[in-house]
């Protein structure tokens, strides 16, 4: 669904400007019932070329490894996934469920869900660590809950235009171009982060959301404040803490009561530090930054 909201390029651009033939999509696909089965079988047999398989959703293995809890087009979805991954030139996993297993794979994981090549942080997943698509690449992971639509379309275009082999991936097979910087990169609240001024309630325009409201922007890899949502804004710009949804551990603390929208602390110090920051350094920096904070940092200086 997020994909349909893409702007640069849009879903229509994929067809009109880049000549991509979208064989099937839950909302755009024309084939239903028997015709869809025929199409999928045609792809699986190699009769219809499958250049890019874009998969969304976790791979459900329950009950007992059969995958029957998630049937699609007449058989277990996982069986389609296995067959189509064998013939696809490139495989792209979109969203947390397809990449790491997502919320369905949260313990105790009753649906025995997996991502395509990961289960949370552990490599392997449904296809195993050795899996390579026909192009010789592992699954390209585009995580997020949801994934930003432009991340999806830009990766699809890169692959479709013959630049798939140039996509550098990080340790979690995410495109580095999107997932090297942090959600905090480009956040409009960075000056409040620097001066350790906290937002204490939703809707406050001043203050950083990291210190009290559980924002994971300083330790989450995503370009949410570089490639804006709807080309307009982002969670943190709108006063909503980052939930860290592009990281394998999402949802953090398994959504236990009291852990959502609340910075977890141990003896008053954040349990999860900004990436690369040590506890002793954090304490020193906080003391100095608060002492140096200017008056304007405590005031609502945003205007509409």
């Amino acid at each position: 669904m997020s994909f349909l909201n893409a702007e640069e390029p849009s879903a229509c651009d994929l067809v009109t400007d880049f000549g991509i033939n979208i064989l099937w999509h839950p909302s755009l696909g024309m084939e239903l019932g028997d015709n869809l089965q025929k199409l999928l079988k045609s792809c699986a047999s190699g009769q219809t070329a499958l250049d890019i398989l874009v998969f969304e959703g976790s791979v459900v293995n329950a009950p007992g490894g059969t995958g029957e809890w998630n049937r699609f087009a007449g058989r277990a979805m996982k069986d389609w996934v296995r067959d189509l991954c064998k013939v696809a030139t490139f495989v792209v996993a979109v969203g947390d469920c397809a990449t790491w297993g997502g919320i369905p794979a949260t313990a105790p994981n009753p649906s025995e869900s997996q991502g395509l090549q990961f289960l949370k942080r552990k490599a392997g997943g449904f296809l195993g660590t050795q899996y390579r698509s026909k192009a010789g690449l592992p699954v390209i992971n585009v995580p997020g809950c949801p994934a930003h639509p432009d991340w999806i379309t830009q990766i699809v275009v890169a692959v479709a235009t013959g630049r798939g082999g140039e996509i550098a991936l990080d340790d979690f097979q995410r495109p580095k171009t999107f997932f090297t910087s942090f959600t905090q990169t480009g956040c409009t609240r960075n000056m409040h982060f620097a001066y350790k001024v906290s937002a204490t309630e939703f809707g406050q325009r001043k203050g950083c959301l990291f210190y009290d409201l559980g924002c994971r922007g300083p330790m989450t890899h995503s370009p949410c404040n570089r490639i804006l949502w709807n080309r307009q804004s982002s969670k943190t710009r709108a006063g909503m803490p980052c939930l860290g949804c592009t990281e394998p551990e999402f949802p953090f603390q398994d959504l236990a009561p009291g852990t959502v929208f609340k910075t977890q602390t141990v003896m008053g110090i954040p349990k999860d530090m900004p990436t690369g920051v040590e506890k002793s350094g954090y304490i020193k920096l906080t003391s100095a930054a608060k002492a140096a904070s200017p008056r304007w940092a405590e005031e609502d200086l945003f205007v509409v």
Partner: peptide, 16 residues
């Protein structure tokens, strides 16, 4: 626990 806990370094403290 070896950490000074004055209001001045607390996240809820408005310095000015």
């Amino acid at each position: 626990a070896g950490i000074e806990q004055p209001c001045s370094t607390c996240m809820y403290f408005l310095v000015h």
